[in-house]
Design a protein around this nucleic acid. Structure first.
Lengths: 221, 221
DNA sequence: TGTACATCAGTGAACGCGCGTTCACTGATGTAC
DNA sequence: TGTACATCAGTGAACGCGCGTTCACTGATGTAC
């Protein structure tokens, strides 16, 4: 999407809103780019989403406003980038679980415990990212960030379906599509709930959620 | 929480943040109070949550700022009131479903269809409230509004457990508590998903969600 | 039933602050020859 | 390997706007007798 000039100079791309503007091309600027993301994550953890402003991001990152505007048109673009990274980190982990044979329905207790392991890691990934819980909330609350989460969900669901078909499940394509989406959506909701409610017995909640899903899978044609 | 003086004068209560301040005591002021809520709901539907400001609420409601500040300390208090009303409207409907014998596990298809009916009505209630989808999002995204949703969920779950015990289900209290909470949480997530994704085949998604839950209930001791 | 008075309900106008954003500029890095 | 030059990366300082909020006030409603 970005053309280059003689000396490989980056040119801003014209997309509105969420896209990052100038992509960094030197080491120094790549570091700045990362610094902005780090500062934003820490700020989210400190003061939350509502009080996040571009000025505060600059201050925290030790930069002046034009430096930030060089890369991001507004705070939503920064959030979108953080959102993509969170989803990506989760996806890599979940896809590994699926490709290793997760999501079956033969041995109930075995499958349940495998789902629990996978979801636990998703929870941990969210907790480990500074401001991760806020990024997660933003993906739900801000419509212009929805597609980031949904794209991730649908991609993972598609991979799950592929496994199911390889196992020879007989349900129709439409049935499998809905079932896989609901499965991933439910998993996502459960991990969100555990992240949001520390009082809850997380492992137990994940286990029961996994049980629901596997029982459902066993009832599919 | 609010004392009264000679002529029944309302006195502001001291709670921070979210509580409404002065409760209206005359017809005129009750109408104003409602007008503020209506204006906020419509504004949410129009411009969304991020761009909502007290000034805009005043303008839309045809009031001056001090009139709004008389009843609400800030926009979060207005959102909290809208949130309580949305939850309350949903609760009344769901409790009716439960008290009428919903949430059992005898006839799979019968129970599924009853859950679907209940969830469909919840979806409709959210859609019918102006700005309802935004109120729903705010309940998720703003931590200081979380308790509104959780209180509703836990109350409904408690009522569901009561039915289960009346039916003589043998699972332990802890098991039933977790199972009922997950049930209601999942129902809530599913209705949210349907409200958020109009492209989805809503009825089908609700049906499969209900199936998951009922299958899970049948596996409980 | 009328009147004086207390209290409620809302107005008009303004405030200081911090927000998002931009301009013209300087210093740092990379490239061509 | 050195130098001139193009481009990248970030600074300093400021802007106008609209935000949340408040003050002193007026008109509306209810109450006591």
């Amino acid at each position: 999407l970005s053309r280059t000039t003689k000396a490989g100079a980056a040119v801003p791309n014209a997309d509105v809103q969420l896209r990052t503007k100038m992509r960094p091309s030197q080491d120094r600027s790549r570091a700045t780019f990362e610094e902005i993301l780090t500062a934003t994550g820490e700020l989210l953890a400190d003061i939350g989403f509502e009080r996040l402003t571009t000025n505060r991001v600059c201050e925290r990152a030790g930069l002046t406003p034009p430096a930030v505007y060089r890369y991001f048109p507004n705070k939503y673009a920064i959030l979108a980038e953080l959102g993509r990274r969170l989803m990506s980190a989760q996806d890599i982990d979940v896809l590994e679980f699926i490709d290793a044979g997760g999501g079956g329905r033969d041995d109930l207790e075995l499958e349940v415990s495998r789902w629990v392991d996978s979801m636990s890691r998703t929870v941990q990934i969210t907790r480990d990212l500074p401001g991760g819980i806020w990024v997660m909330r933003a993906l739900r609350a801000l419509p212009n960030l929805h597609h980031v989460r949904l794209r991730s969900r649908d991609m993972v669901a598609e991979r799950l379906r592929r496994q199911w078909r390889a196992r020879g499940w007989k349900a129709s394509d439409a049935e499998l599509e809905l079932a896989s989406r609901l499965t991933i959506e439910l998993m996502y909701s459960a991990t969100e709930m555990v992240v949001e409610e520390p009082d809850l017995d997380g492992p137990k909640a994940l286990e029961e959620t996994a049980r629901m899903v596997v029982l459902y899978h066993r009832a599919l044609p």
